[in-house]
């Protein structure tokens, strides 16, 4: 005989406890007539939902605005960089008169040579 069978053979599974007469019916009536107010499921969450939706909308708008600003800033920055690069190249390529005179002075072609060269060509 198992331990469980031993217990069942001694005391069974019956219920030795009792309740006052009509207890369950009375309990149910009293409980249901004195239920506390439940936290409002209509107003509070609804307000939360409205605010939640509005907040989500504002966040979306703000995110889109920031995106546009960043896009413009990036494009603007790219243009500035491009213009700077162009100007820088032009600056680098421009010669001052002094620089040109110096270059010509150091050139292997002097005026005479240049003249001869041009004359021969023609």
């Amino acid at each position: 005989m198992s331990d469980e069978e031993l217990i069942k053979s001694k005391v069974g599974t019956g219920n030795p406890f009792k309740v006052p007469e009509g207890y369950f019916e009375t309990f149910q009536q009293q409980l249901l007539s004195s239920l506390p107010e439940r936290p409002s499921v209509d107003e509070e969450p609804a307000r939360t939902r409205v605010w939640g939706r509005a907040r989500r909308t504002w966040i979306s708008v703000a995110a889109a605005f920031v995106g546009v600003v960043v896009l413009f800033a990036t494009l603007h920055q790219m243009n500035v960089t491009k213009e700077s690069a162009t100007l820088a190249t032009a600056d680098e390529m421009a010669f001052t008169e002094d620089e040109m005179a110096e270059y010509m002075a150091s050139s292997v072609f002097d005026d005479y040579t240049l003249y001869s060269y041009l004359t021969n060509e023609e």
């Binding site: 309740v19 309990f27 149910q28 239920l35 499921v41």
Partner: peptide, 23 residues
């Protein structure tokens, strides 16, 4: 979960489970 029917539905629940929970 529906405010209009919550109380009557809860009464069903109470009727069903009062005894087993009590024991």
């Amino acid at each position: 979960r529906e405010p209009k029917t919550a109380q009557s539905a809860f009464a069903v629940l109470v009727k069903e489970y009062t005894e087993p929970l009590y024991w």
